[in-house]
Structure formats: structure tokens, C-alpha cells
């Protein structure tokens, strides 16, 4: 069953077509590496799949919902790790993770239990949990952000440069998280420039350039090597 199905999807950022008729199909339980140059449309593709953008043209079906009309139905079932952390600087790490667990509809003990599990997975010890986010390093914030997403146990992970800013332990934690998520049946789309690292997790590589899929290793395309620096569109 396809978790993500895009047919000729177009998404505009202002007047610019950040996605210019993209075709992509991702099956349940797959891990897909999205690669491409800066501005190719990778981030926009992830935001579109999260239901944050409305497709201007084409068909976009995620988790069985048409995103032209049912974007909100998808949102609670996906997790999007963007460039920002999405954290509240004046709250502690524990308070942030707990808030996002409760915001996802979890109640009391369940929220706290999942928060503790997610924090442990990302290597956030008791000392860090009691600190306010404002005083954390960029890498610690990134770990907190990922833990706050993990509490939701989403069906579809959309990870934009998940290893950025992390030390080796943090990178390993992200890899473990992806493996665990896929093991639990989730689907993962990862946009990354760390090709070798992500390729060990993902046998499928999709190359995006100028808002289009220009190569897909699952279809036997060969143009999946390198970072596709031949050109990019205006999309982020």
C-alpha cells in the first residue's frame, strides 16, 4: 500500500514553483533518501507531504488522504523535523517533550511514559531534562526536537537533515530511531546531504532537482550518485 502517492504535484512558494510536477510513490515501511542540491525542492516536498502546503496542481495522497481537501486528517499521523527545532526556549527539555506528547492527544501517565522513552532514545539524561532549552547547545536542542516528535509515534516520518548539528552519539541515536520506526511499521522520508550515512539505512534514493524527481534508484535510474548540483529551483 502506498503511504505517499504524488502524481504531477505542483507547489508554489509565492509565485515560484518549488515543486514543478513531481511524481513519487512510497510504500509502507520504506525508508527513502531524498537528495538533491540546495533549492531543489526537498524541504518543500516534505512540507507538502506533511499537509502544511496545499498542492497547486496534481494529485497528492498521503496515508490515504487527498491533501487537496483533507490536509488536517494527515497531520496528526506524520512527524516533520524541519530546520527549526519547534521548541519553547523558556521551558525545560522535559516540559517541552511532555507538552508535545499531550498536544498529540496523549494523556497523563501515557504521555510521561512515552516522553521518558523518547528522551532516553535520544540520549537526554536527567541533567539535561531539567534544563531550559535556551541554555542548550544546538545539538542538544536538535536531540530534544527529535525526542518531541518521537513521542507521537507517527506513521510517516519526514526528516529534513536529521543529522545536522549532531555529534557522533546524536547521529547514531537518529539512525537507531529511524531503524526502530521502520521496524515498528512506519515509513520514513529523509532529506540529507550525508549520503553515505543515510544510504546505510535506505536502499532507495530519490534525486530531486528543480522541483522534479530526476532519478529514482527503485526504478533502476542511474543518475542517483552525487548531489545533483546541476541545478535547483527556487524552492527550499
Amino acid at each position: 500500500m502506498s503511504v505517499v502517492e504524488l502524481r504531477g504535484a505542483v507547489a508554489l512558494l509565492g509565485r515560484f514553483p518549488a515543486l514543478a510536477g513531481i511524481d513519487l510513490s512510497v510504500e509502507a515501511g520504506e525508508t527513502v533518501l531524498i537528495q538533491g542540491p540546495n533549492g531543489a525542492g526537498k524541504t518543500t516536498l516534505l512540507r507538502l507531504c506533511a499537509g502544511l502546503l496545499r498542492p497547486t496542481a496534481g494529485d497528492v495522497v498521503v496515508l490515504g488522504h487527498d491533501l487537496t481537501t483533507e490536509r488536517r486528517a494527515v497531520r496528526r499521523r506524520v512527524a516533520l523535523l524541519g530546520h527549526s527545532t519547534g521548541l519553547y526556549g523558556d521551558l525545560t527539555v522535559a516540559e517541552n517533550i511532555s507538552f508535545w506528547a499531550r498536544a498529540a492527544g496523549l494523556s497523563g501517565a501515557d504521555a510521561e511514559s512515552r516522553a521518558a522513552t523518547a528522551a532516553g532514545l535520544m540520549g537526554l539524561d536527567q541533567r539535561l531534562l531539567s534544563r531550559t532549552v535556551n541554555v542548550l547547545s544546538a545539538g542538544q536542542r536538535r536531540r530534544t526536537s527529535i525526542a518531541a516528535l518521537a513521542v507521537r509515534r507517527p506513521e510517516l516520518w519526514l526528516l529534513d537533515e536529521p543529522h545536522a548539528g549532531l555529534d557522533q552519539a546524536g547521529r547514531n541515536a537518529v539512525d537507531s530511531l529511524i531503524s526502530e520506526a521502520v521496524g515498528a511499521g512506519a515509513t520514513v522520508l529523509v532529506s540529507s546531504h550525508e549520503l553515505e550515512r543515510v544510504r546505510s539505512l535506505s536502499p532507495r534514493v530519490v534525486t530531486v532537482a528543480a522541483g522534479m524527481v530526476v532519478a529514482d534508484s527503485s526504478s533502476g535510474d542511474s543518475a542517483t550518485e552525487g548531489d545533483g548540483e546541476q541545478g535547483g529551483g527556487p524552492g527550499a
Partner: peptide, 17 residues
């Protein structure tokens, strides 16, 4: 500004709240 300082409002939109 609490919501926009670090793009937390995107998380709220995705939370389903």
C-alpha cells in the same frame, strides 16, 4: 512571538490540536 520564535506554530498545526 512564543509560537514563532522557533517555528513552534508548525508543530501545533501538525499536532492535530
Amino acid at each position: 512571538s512564543i509560537e514563532h520564535a522557533d517555528d513552534a506554530h508548525t508543530g501545533l498545526r501538525l499536532s492535530g490540536m
